[in-house]
Amino acid sequence: MSEAKAAATAAEKLQKGGQSAENAPKRKGLDRKKRKAIFICVMLAFPLVQLFVFWFLVNVNTVVMSFQEFDWLSGKYIFNGFKNFIRVFEEIGGGSAVTRRTVINSVLYFPVTCFISLPLSILFSYFLYKKVPGAAAFRVIFFLPSIIPVAVLTMTFSFSFDATLGFVNPILRALGVENIPSWFGRYPNNQIMIFAYCIWAGLGTNIVLISGAISRIPVEIMEYSKLEGVGKARELFQIAIPLVWPTITTTFILGCTSVFTVMMQPLMLTPSTTDTYTIALMIYNGVLNGRNLPYLSAFGLAMSVIGVPIILLIKWALGKVYADVEY
């Protein structure tokens, strides 16, 4: 860690690193402050209005609904206090095997995306930057899964593992593997396969983002480190990673939100089982069936209210790992 900081400081020295707007000498005094305020207001006006109208106003409905239930006699939604939320926690606590498993599956996407997929993408991005032979071609190919329709990717993926049509099992048998498991036929195998699929197909987007960030590192810093005789591992961990830390943090945060957003992969790979439900998929299916919207609203809201502070805490903690370096 201290070495990493030293490297980061070296980078900072090279770049005469940054000061934030606040630290800048306030040459124009009050005037500057006022103009800054105007700037902030003008710039944020449209994004905030857009957010207010198309997110807040739209979701007010969801929030209000989460405290309601449908009254079948009057045909209206009526206030029912925290009843929906209480039911959410009762179900997770064991009242419903499906809900409980849904939450567990969803939470598992966090380690899978953040501790398997993300480190792999960093490693891949770094070596793409290091000009592995054919790097340009690899970069295009690695991005393929982001543009090939999910339907085709999932179709080839599951066909490949089909016990009689696929080619994976024959290869394994030829290699002497016995007792080949049912890949998609039982839990938790099917859940593990979905995770494997997510890693396989999901690296591309991360690689585009992270290798974009790495290749923006000034050439001088990398060369400087080379002159110092820094090895690959140290170069990666002590220079490259600290320098692109904000991008990594952001990708990590996005990985955290996948707990709430993953839906297409289980829907396509295991279409008719509740074993591999995720929070988003459960809500999607529930909305599609139109059953008990208030409960689903409360479910989504409760998950987010618990999840978002945790994500922010993680973001805060990650921000402490390396000092921000501007270059």
Partner: peptide, 29 residues
């Protein structure tokens, strides 16, 4: 890049926007 009142709250809001799995907001929208 600018420090002003509510900036952290706005960041938190952005994460919240990403994370809330919305249930049936289409009719409202």
């Amino acid at each position: 890049k600018y420090k002003f009142f509510g900036r952290n709250a706005l960041y938190a809001l952005a994460v919240f926007v990403m994370a809330v799995p919305v249930a049936g907001t289409l009719p409202a929208q």
